[in-house]
Simulated assay, not measured.
Amino acid sequence: MISDGMAEVLRSLRLGELRAPARACTRALGAAGVTLSLLVGPERSAEPLWSHPGLSGRFEELQFTLGEGPGPDAVRTGSPVVEPDLDRVRPARWPALLPAARELGVHGVCCFPLGIGAIRIGVLTVLCGGDRHLSRQQYADAVALSAVLTSTFLSGEPRGEVGGVQGFDPGVRQPSGLRRAVVHQATGMVSVQLGVTMEEALLRLRAHAWGSARSLGEVAEDVVARRLRFSDAFDDGSGPHSPDGGKG
């Protein structure tokens, strides 16, 4: 059974009365933050639709850049990934993400996939508080929220009932202009440059971003602006190069 707070959030969303769904969901869940992302593009990467607070957005960008973490795992397996205390996670599980998450001040993360069966459409990411705990009520509320979001996006209209709440408008629409469009464009360019699949091209971009301590978006912008080019001729370990000699 969902909590009264989550039931109220779903009612407000259904009536179109909620203008800050991420903030409201964060408060109802008693979480440190919430992000809702949909899978878009040929690489099926997670595109944030709403997020609160800023820490949630930064953590989502970190997962996107590294390509590892509870969010990608939840999408891949189709099952919730519940890790309220990241200090108890084996370092080998997410070797790049764990130390970076600690630097951000993220203590625990729980991710709930949006989808049915083999269909994956998105992921709901919940940041846990400093107590590094997720109660049964919080888990039930998060599962209910992800289930209703899944139903809404798959059907294209409000449907179903969770905890006595009949459907709702999630307060978001799939964006007409994706914030990460430049990453998708850069992935396609690198795919052509190297003659590799889109998946491999995205891995190359991520590796370069991580190795240069930059965000994936920044690297992608350089590729699209032709300030950075990936070439097999530079696969001897020197990596991509700047056609203009790095002068911009």
Score class of each variant (00 low, 15 high):
Gly30Met: 02
Gly78His: 09
Asp236Trp: 07
Ala101Pro: 09
Ala225Ser: 13
Ala140Thr: 13
Ala24His: 00
Ala7Glu: 13
Pro72Gln: 02
Pro240Asn: 12
Leu49Arg: 07
Pro170Ile: 05
Arg227Asp: 15
Leu66Asp: 11
Asp73Val: 08
Leu145Trp: 09
Leu66Gln: 11
Asp85Tyr: 12
Tyr139Asp: 07
Asp222Cys: 07
Pro243Arg: 08
Val223Leu: 11
Trp210Arg: 02
Val40Thr: 03
Glu103Val: 10
Arg159Ser: 08
Val9Glu: 00
Ser238Arg: 13
Trp94Phe: 08
Leu127Trp: 09
Gly217Tyr: 12
Ala181Val: 03
Asp4Ser: 15
Leu114Val: 05
Ser151Phe: 03
Val223Thr: 12
Leu10Ile: 08
Leu10Arg: 02
Met1Arg: 14
Ala201Glu: 01
Leu194Gly: 00
His133Met: 08
His208Arg: 07
Glu8Arg: 13
Thr125Arg: 09
Gly211Gln: 07
Gly41Asp: 01
Ile121Cys: 12
Val172Cys: 11
Leu49Glu: 05
Leu202Asp: 03
Phe168Trp: 10
Gly171Cys: 08
Thr197Glu: 10
Ser155Trp: 06
Gly105Leu: 04
Ser215Glu: 14
Ala233Gln: 14
Pro21Leu: 13
Phe168Asp: 03
Phe153Ser: 00
Pro91Tyr: 02
Ala92Tyr: 00
Arg90Gln: 07
Thr150Trp: 02
Val34Glu: 03
Ala144Asn: 00
Thr187Leu: 00
Val109Pro: 05
Arg120Tyr: 06
Leu10Gln: 05
Arg180Phe: 15
Thr77His: 10
Ala213Gln: 05
Ala225Phe: 14
Ser56Val: 02
Ser56Pro: 01
Gly248Gln: 13
Ala213Thr: 06
Gly160Val: 01
